[in-house]
Amino acid sequence: MKRSWLLLGPAGAWLAVFFAVPLGIMATYALRPRHVLGGVYPGWTATHLSRLFEPLYLAVLERSVVLSLIATVLALLISFPIAITIVRATRWRALLLFLVVLPFWTSFLVRTYATIFLLRDTGAINQVLQFLGIIHDPLRMLYTPGAVLFGLVTGFVPFMVLPIYASLEKLDPALLEAAEALGATSWRRFLRVTWPLTLPGVAAGCLLVFVPALGSFLTSDLLGGAKVELIGNLVQNQFTSARNWPFGSALSFLLLLVVMIGMLLKLKLSPRLTTNDQ
């Protein structure tokens, strides 16, 4: 029993070999000369790293970060009302929760593909708007940055709703009643009690939206129609059509770097609420 921490061994070894080591090899690949058939040659070079700073690629990085940040904020704005609605509901609570959990578990690929039915020229939105006589010609929505944003937000909203719901559910209703008894209006109550106490859930949710949004390539692939290139697509290209593994590796580390910055921000933003954390 005293040696039971050795049980950590198998999982630890597995992650070391198949998570840490690959990242290590990838780091060296970023410094190797490129092999045109994929892979690398022996030797060292810094060309791939310096290429990262070319305006073309910096623009892709900027677009990716900005789009992911907007997606995160929009997801937050949608998720909080959804989470509040679930917590408030009594009779329909289980169903409302299920309706968020369902997309959470459904294939992301299928969900992204299904979004096309909503956004395409003959899609549901255009048909409804035309039927109502609001527009005459269909709006061009699919294959625009807006479509990519829509796909990112709806794609990752469940990741935001669930942690916020979890921290809202833990919130003692007596705290809200106390705030009300102390004279706080509903909006002030939210600002001074609900929000600070759910901040850990919000921070977790933001990270869970921002990180996959930043690294996504499926969304821009299917909904952006190769017109909206994000850093995820750029990385994917280096390992498929472009066959530039070292540059792809360098780009990957750039992506990891941004993710780490996001992680650190999350740690900073999420205060340790030990009293409410049991």
Binding site: W5, L15, F18, F19, P22, M26, G232, V235, W245, V259
Partner: peptide
């Protein structure tokens, strides 16, 4: 050791799938 391992667990979870995928591709190759 266990506590350190637990905080390290976040890393594979927050690593973008693209990166995890290509790093494994590189390992296998």
């Amino acid at each position: 050791a266990a506590a350190a391992f637990e905080s390290l667990l976040v890393l594979p979870i927050v690593t973008p799938e693209v990166v995890a995928g290509i790093s494994l591709l590189i390992l296998f190759s």
